[in-house]
């Protein structure tokens, strides 16, 4: 069982490498933001698999924290790209 967990961890890390290629190469800024969001989500999988390998439950609180941070970061980037600023008082769109 522990071998299966290690193999899964290696495969998810490989997918993170593929996302890093897009993060470095990406022609536009939204490409990079999409890749960064997907890397954050893959990191959640990596933390879950690590908590299985180390047989501890203390990492599972990090999962909730990282999912919230990934969403807030992507939402802030999207708002910045759309209007040029993160905080504003207009509410017409």
């Amino acid at each position: 069982m522990i071998i299966f967990f290690w193999i899964s961890l290696i495969l998810v890390s490989l997918s993170v490498v593929g996302l890093l290629i897009r993060l470095i190469k990406g022609p536009t800024v939204p490409d990079r933001v999409v890749a960064l969001d997907a890397i954050g989500i893959s990191l959640i999988s990596i933390v879950a698999l690590l908590s299985l390998i180390f047989e501890t439950e203390f990492f599972l609180e990090i999962i909730l924290l990282m999912s919230i941070l990934a969403f807030i970061g992507t939402a802030a980037f999207a708002k910045f790209l759309e209007r040029g600023e993160v905080f504003d008082r207009r509410s017409d769109r």
């Binding site: 939204p30 980037f77 999207a78």
Partner: peptide, 14 residues
């Protein structure tokens, strides 16, 4: 977040 970044990309002219 996928929807948000897609709309932001369209509005910013990609």
């Amino acid at each position: 977040s996928g929807h948000l970044i897609g709309r932001a990309a369209y509005v910013s002219g990609v």
